[in-house]
Design a protein around this nucleic acid. Structure first.
Lengths: 127, 127
DNA sequence: GACGGTGTATTATAGTAGTGATACACCCAT
DNA sequence: ATGGGTGTATCACTACTATAATACACCGTC
C-alpha cells in the first residue's frame, strides 16, 4: 500500500523504504504528524523482517524527518517546512535526471524523443 | 575518457561499465570492430582492479556485444545491426524514465517542471 | 496493574556481492 | 625464443544485507 518494494532489485530493501519515504514526505504526500504503518505491519505485508523496516525508520529519524515517541507509531516530524518549494523538490529529482541525460547522450537520443516518452509515462502513471 | 565511473555510487563498478558500454554500442558511439581500451589501461586510469574491468568485458562478450581474440584488444562485435532504430534505443532508456516518473509522482512534481529541468540538463551535457 | 500496541537493542547466522592479488595462457612482433 | 601486449582463472578477503529469536522500554486503555 505505502511502499513499492522490489526484492529482486539490487538496491537493498531498507534503502528503498528510506528513499520512498523521503520523497513522499518532501513531496507533501505525507505531512507533519502523519503516522507511519508499524514495522510489524509493513513486515508482514511484504514478508520481510521487522528489523529491516526498523532500520529504515531509524535512519530517517536520525535524519530528522521522522519522530519517534515510544509506544506510539512513528510520525512525520513537525519542524519541516510543510512542503518544500518546487525548486527544492526538483533538486531531489536532479540526480535521477542527470542519469537520464547521460544515458540519452550515450544512446544518441534527442531531447525530443526522450521527453515524449517521459511525458507519456508520467501521464500513464497518473491513472 | 571512455567511462564515467562513480565509486561512491551504490551500483557496482563493473555494472556501470557494462551499462555504459552497452549504450555506447547501441547508440552508435562505438561501432563494429572498434577496439576497447585494455583492462589494465582502464584499471589504472580509474585506480580499480583489472579484474573488475575484465568482469564487465566478459559479461558483454557472453551477451554477444563484444568479441575476444586472444592477445588482442576486445572489439565490438560485427554481427550487430550497426545502429538499432531509435525506437529500440528508446526502450533501453525506458527503465530509467520509469524511475523518474515514479520519483516525480512521489515528489508531487508536474511533468512540465520535470521536463524543463531535463531539457536543460541535456543541453548542458551537450557542451 | 495487566494487556496489547508501539519501536529497538542485542546477538548470531547465513548468504551474497564486490573487489583485490597473484599467477597463468595466449598472441604477436622483434 | 623473448618480451610486451592481450584477457582470465583462482582464491581469499571484506563488507553488506537480510533474517531470526529474544528481550526490553514505553504508552494507552480496559
Amino acid at each position: 500500500m505505502y511502499f513499492d518494494l522490489q526484492s529482486e532489485s539490487s538496491t537493498p530493501i531498507y534503502r528503498q523504504i528510506v528513499e520512498q519515504l523521503r520523497r513522499q514526505i518532501n513531496g507533501g504526500l505525507l505531512g507533519p504528524g502523519d503516522a507511519l504503518p508499524s514495522v510489524r505491519q509493513v513486515a508482514e505485508q511484504h514478508t520481510i523482517n521487522p528489523m529491516t523496516v526498523s532500520r529504515a525508520y531509524s535512519l530517517l529519524e536520525a535524519e530528522g524527518l521522522l519522530v519517534r515517541r515510544r509506544g506510539k507509531p512513528m510520525t512525520v516530524a513537525a519542524g519541516l517546512a510543510t512542503e518544500s518549494s518546487a525548486r527544492q523538490r526538483l533538486c531531489l529529482l536532479q540526480p535521477c535526471l542527470e542519469q537520464v541525460a547521460r544515458e540519452a547522450r550515450q544512446l544518441g537520443l534527442s531531447p525530443d524523443e526522450v521527453v515524449t516518452l517521459l511525458v507519456e509515462l508520467m501521464d500513464k502513471e497518473e491513472a
